[in-house]
Amino acid sequence: MSTIKSSEHIAGHAQSGSTPLGRRMGRLGLELLGILFTIIVFWIPFYFIIVNALKSTQESADLSLALPSTYHLWENIMTVVQARNYMLLRAFWNSSVLTIVSVLALVILCGMAGYVMQRRRDRLTPTLDLLILVGLIIPPAIVPTIWVLDGMGLFKTMPGLILVEVALNFPFCVLLYKGFMAAIPREIDEAAVIDGCGGFRLFFNIILPLLQPVSATVIVLCAVTIFNDFANPLYFLPGSANVTVQTTLYNFKSQYVTQWNLLFTNILLITIPPLLLFLFFNKRIVAGMTAGSVKG
């Protein structure tokens, strides 16, 4: 791998050797400018969060970029985790349950829906497409949703919030599945049907495994969206027994007005899951977001 890279470099140099020196310097300048830009605009805010999570309460009161004189990261983490009777742990548990169950439901339900909607084109198709488009564009009606959930006895419950997440992420996911289904040849279905496969077995044994790449995209994108969701837990799952990580962070904001170090530690802790997803699935996230947005 490294030899290929270095030979590319040599080729690049040989080629740029023929271009004027000015252009080469220009490119180098652009690269340096780019790095400088990311340092100022992106790294400083990240650094700001991290360095303040390391400090003691007095030092973090300055809100400065200075390095801490003594490091308090572990102590800060313990304080944040133990705060309000281990609220953060409960929040992580709730957010994990919410994210995992919602994402699993989205994969199965939207996979099935996308399968039928792509294969079956009939009188209903335009209406269904329009209803999906409506869901992509229009914001949810908050209080009437609460009214519906309340009527079913699901308001302020985890299953209720899971249903909300499934409903609101359905249009986007189904579009992704529909787009991917179009690339799976119908001959596969026909062969399976001739061999005596019913629709149910065709979908679960043949189609769903073939949908694996798009399922991976749906899993990663929806996991990030739902884990980071603030507004829906705020409305549909209020109360201190039911906190999620985002609502906890928001509550801590008012609690820790004089203890910025703890607030930043909290931010740091809840950024770890998305950071891990980013490190492992960066390419897939980017590919999924562009596919979904350009086609949608």
């Binding site: 099935m112 829906a113 039928v116 294969r119 949703t145 519906v148 959930l149 249903l163 409903a167 979908f203």
Partner: peptide, 28 residues
């Protein structure tokens, strides 16, 4: 064809979407 691509596959998602999103939107 109709049995293979039955609308029953759409049902679970459609019911959730209808009850939790479309119905509240209309009621609003």
């Amino acid at each position: 064809f109709r049995r293979t691509y039955s609308y029953w596959f759409l049902m679970p998602a459609a019911v959730i979407y209808f009850v939790i999103f479309l119905l509240p939107t209309v009621m609003s």
